[in-house]
């Protein structure tokens, strides 16, 4: 039965292939062999054009025009005014002295978030990967467990944790049971920031753990045997063998993590009820969102200018990553 089915399938594929071959041969004769591949790329290129490159161009269009009109063509050209407004500041370290103080608050919040989040996620993912790399019982289960949150929607993540951390949430219920006075975690600046990082680490660590685990498993076992014969302690093996050989993977993780941390928005937005308390957890993407869609006054020009600035930073990070990835391929 199965053999028959596969034979039929094979015949079918062969039939289709020979049908396809006729027009392709004709095309090759018509356009030349080298040009045919572009024909097949065309649908994809069109989609990318419409949904990626065109929006970039439109964003730049919005960024250099003012007013509140929706259509770019209806908007007055203002040159670099929007950028000037975003960047005019007496003291960049004190957002209050900036014309767009919210923008600079968001930048500094994002800056600190990226710092803590990158370090924490990297460490947690690395330690988890090192542990999972040992021959241990239930390794597959743990791997799946740590990866599972990656599959969830950010909004779901935000909601789950909010329920957990609320004034009447699970954590406080637990505290009350233990006789500890309850906290309103999400209304205290320190706690709220801490939990934004914690939730982000919990959410994403599985993904990075997987990358690092793949890297660890690619290190030949006999290097560890050679190190054992060479009297290397566990510490020395970790620092002199494992980490250097994991270097390329660590770099990839570091850059990916930075790019994605800069883009922090949805789960934090849901968790903190829009960046609260106050503006303590208001990040750059949130600023862009609020300027563009947050009120009836659609400040599309400012929002787009901020997007373009962020895009430039991300582009720089991506280029660094591509450069490093190419370099590590040579090792």
């Amino acid at each position: 039965m199965a053999i028959k089915a596969s034979a039929v399938l094979e015949r079918l594929v062969e039939g289709v292939m020979s049908l396809v071959e006729i027009p392709i041969n004709a095309l090759e004769r018509l356009m030349g062999r080298k040009r045919v591949p572009y024909l097949f790329l065309a649908p994809n290129l069109v989609l990318f054009g419409i949904f990626t490159f065109l929006p970039i161009a439109i964003s730049v269009g919005y960024a250099v025009t003012g007013g509140t009109n929706l259509f770019v063509t209806d908007r007055p050209f203002v040159g670099l005014d929007n950028f000037r407004q975003l960047l005019s500041c007496q003291d960049y370290s004190r957002p209050g002295t900036c014309q767009e103080s919210l923008f600079w608050t968001a930048i500094w919040n994002t800056f600190w978030f990226v710092g803590f989040n990158v370090v924490a996620t990297l460490l947690v993912a690395l330690v988890t990967a090192l542990i999972l790399n040992r021959a241990m019982v239930g390794r597959g289960f743990f791997r799946a467990m740590f990866f599972y949150p990656v599959l969830l929607s950010p909004v779901v993540i935000g909601l789950i944790w909010k329920w957990f951390l609320d004034r009447n949430g699970l954590l406080n219920a637990f505290f009350e049971m233990m006789g500890v006075p309850p906290h309103v975690f999400l209304l205290e600046v320190g706690w709220a920031r801490f939990f934004v990082v914690l939730v982000s680490v919990w959410f994403h660590m599985g993904f990075y753990t997987l990358i690092l685990l793949a890297g660890l498993q690619a290190i030949p076992k006999d290097l560890y045997e050679a190190a054992a014969i060479d009297a290397a302690s566990r510490r020395r093996t970790l620092f002199a063998i494992t980490l250097p050989l994991l270097g390329p993977n660590l770099l990839v993780v570091l850059i990916l993590l930075m790019i994605r941390s800069v883009q922090i928005f949805d789960e934090a937005w849901v968790l903190t009820n829009g960046g609260g308390p106050g503006t303590a957890n208001s990040f750059i993407v949130q600023y862009i969102y609020q300027m563009a869609f947050g009120s009836d006054l659609r400040l599309l020009g400012l929002a787009s200018a901020a997007s373009v600035l962020m895009g430039v930073v991300l582009l720089a990070l991506t280029l660094v990553q591509l450069r490093l990835a190419r370099k590590t391929e040579e090792i």
Binding site: P220, D222, L223, I229, D230, A231, A232, I331
Partner: peptide, 20 residues
Amino acid sequence: LSPAERKIAMVFQSYALYPH
């Protein structure tokens, strides 16, 4: 005893040189 304590040295089929 651990490999290091046995005063042996081994040459592996794959050489197992530390690549970095």
